[in-house]
Design a binder for these strands. Structure first.
Length: 250
DNA sequence: GTGCCATGTGAAA
DNA sequence: TTCACCTGGCACC
C-alpha cells in the first residue's frame, strides 16, 4: 500500500512503511494495530474525536487534517483526529496489550481476571468499568447502560457485587459490544422498553440513561441523574439503581 | 453563526 | 486533578 501523512505528523513513519505490504489489522479494547511486513505495527487509538474512514479508490486530494492515508488498489483509508497514531515494534505492541484487561469482544478473554479485580476493590464499579486494565473496550456509554440494565448504582463498591451479578454484567457486555460492532451504533434498549416518541424520548432515543439527565427513566419515570466521576459523567436512575438494594423485609 | 459538549487518554501540575 | 489534544454535532441565538 501507499502510506502517506498529508497532515505531516506521521510523515517520518509513513515514509518507512510506504510501498510495503499491509498484512493484518486487529483490535484489542480501544486499540487498533495495523500490521505491516517486517512485524511493524501502526498503533491507532481514536480517542474522543478520531475517525478512520475507508472508501473506494480513487482517493480524492486530502481535505483538512489527514494524519494517515493508506491507499491500496481498491480502497483507501483516512485517519483524522486520533489520540494515537504511532509506529511501534512487536515488543511495544505487547506492552500495550499487557496493560489491558479482558475484552468482551475477544472470544478467548478470561472474565475471571476482571472479577478478581472487582471483588477485591472498594472502588466504585462505575470507575472499574472505565478502567481499561480491568475491562478493555468499555467506555462511558456502555458503562452507563450496562449498569442500568443490571440495576446497579455506579458508585457501588466492586467488592459489594456478587459473582452472579458480575457474570451477568460480563455476559451482557459481550452481547452489547457484539451488537455494537454489528450495527455500528450503541443501542441498549430492550424491545419492551422502546418508548413512544415524545419530548422526553425524541426519535433516535437509543439508551436508557446515557445523556438523558433530568429526563424520565424509561422504566420507572424517575428523573435520570448525573454526577462526575474521575472527570467523566455518570448517568443513572435513582429509583432503578439504588446504592444498596433494599432487602425484602421479613 | 456561536458556544458547548462529547463514545478518551496521558502528560503536567 | 487539570489540561491539551483537535473534530463534529447540536442547542440556542
Amino acid at each position: 500500500v501507499r502510506v502517506d501523512s498529508p497532515q505531516g505528523r506521521f510523515a517520518e513513519s509513513a515514509a518507512l512503511l510506504d510501498r510495503t505490504r499491509l498484512e493484518d489489522a486487529t483490535s484489542s479494547g480501544k486499540h487498533l494495530f495495523v500490521e505491516f511486513e517486517g512485524t511493524r505495527f501502526v498503533h491507532v487509538h481514536l480517542g474522543l474525536y478520531g475517525k478512520f474512514v475507508v472508501n473506494r479508490t480513487p482517493a480524492p486530494a486530502p481535505v483538512g487534517q489527514v494524519r494517515l492515508r493508506l491507499t491500496g488498489s481498491a480502497a483507501y483509508a483516512d485517519l483524522r483526529g486520533a489520540t494515537a497514531c504511532d509506529l511501534v515494534t512487536d515488543a511495544e505492541r505487547t506492552a500495550i496489550l499487557d496493560r489491558l484487561g479482558p475484552d468482551p469482544l475477544d472470544p478467548a478473554a478470561d472474565p475471571d481476571r476482571a472479577w478478581q479485580r472487582v471483588r477485591r476493590s472498594r472502588s466504585p464499579i462505575g470507575g472499574m468499568l472505565m478502567d481499561q486494565s480491568v475491562f478493555a473496550g468499555v467506555g462511558n456509554v456502555y458503562r452507563a447502560e450496562v449498569l442500568f440494565r443490571h440495576r446497579l448504582h455506579p458508585l457501588r463498591p466492586g467488592q459489594s457485587l456478587r459473582v452472579g451479578q458480575f457474570r451477568a454484567l460480563w455476559e451482557d457486555l459481550v452481547v452489547l459490544l457484539h451488537e455494537g460492532v454489528r450495527t455500528g451504533r450503541i443501542e441498549t434498549l430492550r424491545p419492551e422498553h422502546t418508548p413512544e416518541q415524545s419530548p422526553a424520548t425524541p426519535a433516535g432515543t437509543r439508551n436508557y440513561v446515557y445523556r438523558r439527565t433530568g429526563l424520565p427513566c424509561l422504566v420507572c419515570g424517575a428523573k435520570v441523574r448525573t454526577e462526575e466521576l474521575a472527570g467523566r459523567n455518570l448517568f443513572w436512575c435513582p429509583r432503578c439503581q439504588p446504592v444498596f438494594r433494599s432487602r425484602a423485609v421479613r
